[in-house]
Each structure stands twice: as C-alpha cells, then as structure tokens.
Amino acid sequence: MEVRTIKVFTTVDNINLHTQVVDMSMTYGQQFGPTYLDGADVTKIKPHNSHEGKTFYVLPNDDTLRVEAFEYYHTTDPSFLGRYMSALNHTKKWKYPQVNGLTSIKWADNNCYLATALLTLQQIELKFNPPALQDAYYRARAGEAANFCALILAYCNKTVGELGDVRETMSYLFQHANLDSCKRVLNVVCKTCGQQQTTLKGVEAVMYMGTLSYEQFKKGVQIPCTCGKQATKYLVQQESPFVMMSAPPAQYELKHGTFTCASEYTGNYQCGHYKHITSKETLYCIDGALLTKSSEYKGPITDVFYKENSYTTTIK
C-alpha cells in the first residue's frame, strides 16, 4: 500500500517557510505537534488534498525554529505562539472599519479597549522592536488589523473576551517599542525636605499616572512627601515624541487643539466601556464603527496623549 502524501510549508514567522512532505494517514499533531492554519487549530486533523502548498504555523520545537521565533517575536515564552494563534482565530472574524481616516474595530468580545489602543497607536510616533509587531502594525494602518490585535493580546497575556485596560495595554506595548531616546527629568520640591531631581528613561519617561493635564504637570502637581507634608512635583525636561497622561476616570474637559487623542471610560472596574476622542479640525468621538463630532467635550476621561518633541522648564 502506497503512502499518500502532500507537500506543505511549516513556519513560526510566515517569513521562513520549511518544506514538509506530510503523510495523509496521520494527523498534523502526530507529525508536527500543535499546528495552526489561519489561526485555526488543526492539530487533530489529517492532511487533505486542499492543504497542498498551504502554510501551517507550528510551535518552535527545534533550534532553527526557536531562533526564527525569537528573532521575529522577541520572546522565548513557549506558550506565546499558541496564544497568538488562538487569538487570531477570533480577531480574523472582527470587522476593521476605516473611521475618520483611522483603522478602528467594530465592537465584539469586549474589544473596546483594543480599538482605543489601536486608534491611539496610529496617532503617536512609535516604532516597535519585534519585527512581528512592526509588520502587523503597518498592515493594521492599511486596514488589516487582525494579526496586530492578536499579537497585542498575546504580548499582554490576554484572551479574547476578557476586559482590558488601555493604560495597561499601552504599557505592555511600550515595553516592546523603541523608547531608548526618551528621557524625563522631574523635580520634587518640599518646604521641609528641599528639592530632589529624578531622571527617568524609556517607558517611565512617557507615562504618568495622577493627572490628565500635561500643562498642569509642567506647572506642578501636589504629591505627598515622605515627611508627610505636601510637596510639588513638576516637569523639568521632556525628550520624547509623545507623552501619555493618565488618571482614574473623572469628568474632564478636553479643549480642541490642546491634545492629540484621549480615552474615555464609562462604567466601573468590573464592567465598563471605552471610547476614543481625537482632536482634528474639530473633536471626534470614535466608538467602534461609530463616529460623532463636537466642538467641545466633557466626560469621564482616563488617558490623554500629547505630541511632544523637546521641553525644558522655565521655572527657576
């Protein structure tokens, strides 16, 4: 009895394709271990004539594949690729409408935090270190965002349907971005203890939790000093293409032309909904596939993004 075979390709990165001759009487799992086709788990399936010449994702289970996976995804987590594939199996079914010149995501599976993050990423200057993220990001900007969303979920250790947080998501993504040249110098002034300067680099240099107003941050924000008295913390120097200011959701007025974009969060910790506000020729609110415009805006804002380049204080 002759062994019926077909020729397929296996890959971990969709760049390096490895030619395989597979036995049609055995499952993919018996031949390769966990195997995925377009995100779908085909591990328990036997090869079919229609699979001839198709590319299958496999887990990096030998040295060659491990090197290829690390170079593309910059992670050695053995569960990463499987999590990416199972997320992709959902995100490829989502709709990605162009809204006001940006790629958004039609609401499904509690994905409003991903839509808000995706919209924000198209408006701030950011370059990702893992080629996987950078490639998928370019495709997302062009309207094909399924891979990018699935990668975000995998890097953030999230599953489809789980509630997510924009600030946490951005923080994970910033860790995989090139923020080497970003720098922030802060000064804390206390009447009792004097003053202390701190220099922050990388992710810490672009994120701040405690106030939404970048102007206020430049002037000074009140913080408790270690001595128990009130101290003032203010920005001395900022070198970065953008800054992200966050605070627990509270009524906040966004003035046209003073910011790049913002995240609105309605609801409580267990259950809520994100919308995205962007400042173009007027203010726009993007909620999944829905767009509304207004000249002014007041609502429960939790993150505001500002364009920056270089700032030095005039406070002496």
Rank of each mutant, 00 (worst) to 15 (best):
D287T: 03
V58I: 11
C112A: 02
T314W: 14
L212V: 12
Y84L: 06
V42G: 04
T192M: 12
A250P: 02
N147K: 14
V206F: 02
E144L: 08
L173I: 08
P131C: 05
Y269G: 15
F9R: 10
K46R: 13
I315K: 15
K44F: 14
H276C: 08
V22E: 00
A132L: 04
N147M: 10
V58F: 06
R167L: 00
Q122E: 04
E204T: 07
Q196G: 06
L153M: 11
Y137H: 07
G220S: 05
T226D: 11
L235R: 02
A132P: 03
H273V: 00
T159D: 15
D13M: 02
I15P: 06
V99R: 10
Y269Q: 15
N16Q: 10
Q122P: 03
D303M: 04
V21N: 10
F217M: 11
G288Y: 00
V221F: 10
S295E: 08
M244R: 05
G210Y: 00
V185K: 06
L17G: 06
L179P: 04
T292A: 13
N110S: 05
L102N: 02
F259S: 01
G194V: 02
Y172M: 14
G220L: 01
G288W: 01
T64N: 14
H74L: 15
K95M: 12
E253D: 09
H74F: 07
K233L: 14
V188W: 06
K316R: 15
K255L: 10
N110T: 02
M245F: 15
C285R: 07
G33C: 05
Y28E: 00
L163S: 11
G82W: 12
F174G: 02
Y252K: 05
Q197T: 14
A136K: 04
T266P: 00
N309L: 10
N129M: 08
N268G: 15
P131V: 04
C225H: 09
H90M: 12
L65M: 10
L88W: 10
A146I: 04
K158G: 02
L17N: 09
G288D: 00
N178L: 05
F174I: 02
P249I: 05
Q222N: 11
Q30W: 10
C190H: 00
V206L: 04
K275G: 01
P47F: 04
S213A: 05
D13L: 05
F174W: 06
V22H: 03
T10K: 13
T232P: 01
S213M: 03
Q230Y: 15
R141S: 10
C112P: 05
V189L: 10
D109A: 06
G143A: 04
S213Q: 03
T278P: 00
R141Q: 10
L290I: 13
K7S: 14
M24G: 09
I15M: 08
G164I: 00
P131W: 04
T10M: 07
R4W: 11
K95D: 15
L283M: 12
